Amino acid sequence: MSDSQNSSAPVSTPAPTYARPSRTYFDLLLATSAIILILSNIGATKAVAFGPILTDGGFFLFPVAYVIGDVIAEIYGFSRSRKTIFFSFGAAIFASLVFWIVIKLPGADFYENQTALETVLGPVPLIVGGSLLGFVVGQLLNSWVMVAMKKRFAGRFLVGRLVGSTMVGELADTIIFCTIAAPILGITQFSDYLNYVLVGYIYKCLVEFLLMPITVPVIGWFKRHEPTYPRELAGSSL
Rank of each mutant, 00 (worst) to 15 (best):
Y196P: 05
K204G: 04
T179A: 13
T188A: 15
K204L: 03
L194A: 14
I176G: 02
A182I: 02
L198P: 02
P183S: 10
S191G: 07
K204N: 06
I214F: 14
V218M: 11
S191Y: 00
F209Q: 07
Y193W: 13
A181S: 12
F190R: 05
Y201L: 15
V207W: 11
D192M: 09
C178M: 11
L206D: 00
C178L: 04
L206H: 00
Q189C: 00
I187L: 10
K204W: 01
C178D: 06
P217A: 09
Y196W: 12
D173R: 00
P217M: 09
D173I: 01
P217I: 06
V216L: 15
I176Y: 00
Y201K: 13
L210P: 03
T188H: 15
I180P: 04
P183V: 06
I175V: 15
C205G: 02
A181P: 06
N195I: 01
I175W: 07
I214C: 11
V197L: 14
L198H: 08
L185F: 14
F177I: 03
P183Y: 09
G200H: 02
N195A: 02
L198D: 06
S191V: 05
V216M: 14
F177H: 04
F190S: 09
L194D: 07
D192C: 02
P217F: 08
V218S: 04
Y203H: 10
E208W: 01
L198E: 08
T215H: 13
P183I: 09
G186P: 11
M212N: 11
A181Q: 10
